[in-house]
Design a protein around this nucleic acid. Structure first.
Lengths: 117, 117
DNA sequence: GCGGTAGTTAACAAATATGTTAATTAACAA
DNA sequence: TTGTTAATTAACATATTTGTTAACTACCGC
């Protein structure tokens, strides 16, 4: 779970086509053509999206005759979940309480009291 | 929480400098110069990273004399957490149980039985 | 072998991202 | 007004991303 790995995972997830592919794979293995079917996009384009996902470790691929079934690999998603959890307190607390919390924590150096911009 | 918004949020988080900036802001507001200090990077570069974060809604900026204090805004992080939670079962279960689960769910059309590639 | 299906790779074009230095805007301070 | 500090914008270079079409590889079935 190096920083570098997070880079690749977040970058992979930034594309809606790739997120849709993951959603499809959450329902079970699929071949490249099956994955490509819902999209108005050439097969090579899908193939490259799959390569991006594979490099990020989000999918793995088997070999079965001329098919290469893709499978979801959730490890990197767990890393994302762990990363984002560290910020949970920022959306769990109401904003005003949060602002107070920050003030305390910061030992304010000026009296910066502006709120929403 | 449109798809589009997820795109921007994931893309923002794909850069280690920007994640570091968010980590810093988790400790409280900071000015642009304060945020730039740890990085061997020009101020304009940091300024652009902040613009990316702002467009994704991950930070907001106030005005205080000639300073523009930045503040963490966690809303989009909550969206990320919600998105990734849908995959939790894929890393909670052991892989072998998961494979079985997928088989059931899929009503297999061939006998694709390959495991790790 | 020959043809068909599945998928990847090559070559290219266009858009986006990320950094630089130099110039500019804005506010304070004297 | 002049100078200083804080930050952004402009102009530019370079790399990466994302898509296209065309060519290629691999396997199956006859």
């Amino acid at each position: 779970m190096t920083e570098d790995h997070l880079d690749a995972t977040f970058a992979s997830l930034a594309d809606p086509t790739r997120r849709a592919i993951l959603a499809r794979l959450a329902q079970g293995e699929a071949t490249v053509n099956e994955l490509a079917e819902p999209f108005e996009m050439s097969l090579p384009a899908i193939s490259r999206h799959l390569k991006v996902l594979e490099r990020a470790g989000l999918i793995s691929r088997g070999r079965e005759a001329q098919w290469r079934p893709c499978r979801l690999e959730a490890g990197p998603l767990k890393d994302i979940a762990n990363w984002v959890e560290r910020y949970r307190r920022f959306w769990d607390a109401s904003f005003d309480r949060m602002a107070d919390y920050l003030k305390e924590l910061q030992t304010p150096k000026g009296d910066q009291d502006d709120r929403k911009n």
